[in-house]
Design a protein around this nucleic acid. Sequence first.
DNA 1: AGATATAGTTAGCTATGCTAACTAAAGTGC
DNA 2: GCACTTTAGTTAGCATAGCTAACTATATCT
Lengths: 150, 150
Amino acid sequence: MTGVKQKSVLTPALLETADKLHSATIHLLRRLRVRDRESGIGPAQLSALSVLVFGGPKALGELADAEQVRPPTMSRIVSGLARAGLVKREATEDGRRVRLVATAKGAKILWEGRKRRVESLANALALLGEAERGRLRGLVDLLPKIVRKI
Amino acid sequence: MTGVKQKSVLTPALLETADKLHSATIHLLRRLRVRDRESGIGPAQLSALSVLVFGGPKALGELADAEQVRPPTMSRIVSGLARAGLVKREATEDGRRVRLVATAKGAKILWEGRKRRVESLANALALLGEAERGRLRGLVDLLPKIVRKI
DNA sequence: AGATATAGTTAGCTATGCTAACTAAAGTGC
DNA sequence: GCACTTTAGTTAGCATAGCTAACTATATCT
């Protein structure tokens, strides 16, 4: 168990904020999921592909770690991507390891799918007031810091 | 196609904010998923159950709409919940409709699972500075507004 | 009564998560 | 230098969760 008792820092205000954040992210992604389907590529595949496109070639285990998924799960996700011609498995000097590389087609598909989802979201953001957009810009940079601490 | 052209409002800054928000929510939920597994109940079941616990009894179609899922999908989610004794299907005057009601056990399980995830997240938030926590409180209230506009 | 509409379920496909068990390659030790 | 262990991935098998298509049952409408 990693559970270190920290009850003193868990104030009601903090719990409420956490609860709202949790609930909002669930519903946000649920809405965007509709757009995912248009790409014909599943969310896990898209996410893994994005790591390869933006982060460069990776071994399967690295990719599994990055995506917080077990190796067998990533192995199958990669199989799907390879079948669709979006990723290539290349051999390395270490015969056990594989180098996973996004293909040009993979990068293209990624950009298109990402564009659709991000534009859906950006259209929603465009409906906010200027002040709220400003606040939001400052706050989105906070989220990765939070994620890293979970 | 519902796609209304709105390219003029999609500024690069807005797209970047949307992209960051999208990516951060994906990774946030991925981290919290670890805690989901402890409850022995899947994320879709947990989310549907929470609608019943907080929103009261619902017909299957209403619940499917609330969860942005098709009726057959919700039908199976509910079957799982019913099998586990967390939800009851009750008959209504309209013989076609079903009234879905959370059981006491369902409410209990929901609270425990939710507590675990929210506490995980709250522990992460506790590591932020006071100023950042304040900013975050502003963000979480903004998110539901955004979600409604997607 | 017969046609149509509505609410759910069932069947069957795909994708994604897991653990357990396997293969293959690399490193270790005597 | 051959056996043992460790490491990297894959395969197999199970469950959940998403979908569409097709079915059943009940209501409603003409």
